[in-house]
Design a binder for these strands. Structure first.
Lengths: 212, 212
DNA sequence: GTCTATAGTCCGATAGAC
DNA sequence: GTCTATCGGACTATAGAC
């Protein structure tokens, strides 16, 4: 009896985990396409051939689901900062940073787009601990860049501004994906074109700030 | 009698023009803050101390109002290309181009933000003539930049990519206005900070591409 | 032209049967 | 856990008095 109860509980847990993952994955796509307000639970449910009541069963409110998605994406950036921190010289660190941000923009535009929707609306849905982790990560990044300035590896520049420039350049390719498509003969950028973007971006940025 | 009728018609026309202008101006602000779907007629009406039925009197549907706003903003970019074209050297042209794009981002963020909302939504509302004028302007710009490459004024770079980088850097400051505010101690950038952004951006870009 | 009231629709969330 | 049915609220749009 006890064993059967336990097996039942385990099975239910597995079902729960599986469904939560499916829902989060579908939600990530819909939220990135439409933004928080325009996205609907119904659409997410349809994508999964599931009654929308089931979504509410796993995530009581729309905001709960949204925050779960945001939290998951937040971790995506954490690594880059750490990777950048471990590189000793500015040149290598910048090269890797730009590369990984562009990779996210090209390969997984959902992440940048959801973030962009959120920021466009004034970051209304961000909890204070998300804001704090944002600021904390930012502080690490600016301190690192400032050290490059202090050791004469890069030109004198406001570290925060350099970060804005890097973010602006790289996120542009996910936010403005559709405009780029229009200007590119109604085709998304090819693999070769993406490589050229990466080369041109790194060249301009390194030439722009690195002191040889 | 005829005269009075005419005066009446003129007066009504003046009232109509005045109200349409007021509504467009308020709508521009609300649409840029919230995007098409999240913005409500009610909020635009409240901003003008006006019943929302009046908005519908002047603009039958929400989309009519939105398209009117988009059309108006489209003209904002036309000038910059022309100004850039008249400058003989790459250095001066780039300096002015970056300056004017940043000015729009800082002084009138509505324009870039509405454009960005539209692109994020997949450019659903763009008519084909808007797309064509986009491509046409773009062709002029890339041709100009290519001529700088050919005459050895700037390094070898895909002109389209350079434009994406310039747009990414400059529009970031309107799209991500709220994130920047959070990272800046909950204050929008001061006049001095904006000047530093301008200097840092121009320095990095010119150093990055100009051949002295 | 201006206003109040409301029709019609869509969405988030819940109740309750299975 | 899964599903159907529905409530309550918000929004676009319209009807109709002034």
């Amino acid at each position: 009896m006890a064993k059967q109860t336990k097996n039942n509980a385990e099975r239910k847990q597995r079902v729960r985990n599986r469904n939560e993952k499916k829902i989060i994955s579908a939600a990530e796509k819909i939220f990135s396409e439409k933004g928080y307000n325009t996205a609907t639970i119904q659409e997410i449910a349809d994508k999964l051939n599931m009654p929308k009541a089931n979504i509410h069963y796993y995530f009581p409110t729309k905001k709960d689901l949204y925050l779960t998605v945001i939290m998951k994406l937040r971790d995506l950036w954490k690594n880059e900062v750490d990777v950048m921190m471990t590189k000793s010289d500015a040149k290598t660190a910048l090269r890797i940073y730009v590369r990984s941000l562009l990779d996210i923009s090209f390969e997984n535009p959902h992440a940048h787009k959801i973030w962009n929707w959120e920021m466009m609306r004034g970051a209304r849905n961000l909890t204070s601990d998300i804001r704090e982790s944002m600021k904390k990560r930012n502080k690490k990044e600016t301190a690192l860049i400032q050290s490059w300035v202090d050791t004469g590896q890069i030109v004198s520049i406001e570290p925060q501004n350099l970060l804005y420039f890097l973010w602006g350049i790289t996120t542009h390719f996910s936010h403005q994906r559709d405009q780029i498509k229009i200007l590119n003969g109604n085709k998304h950028l090819s693999k070769e074109q993406r490589e050229k973007v990466y080369d041109d971006a790194v060249n301009m940025i390194l030439r722009g700030v690195i002191i040889e």
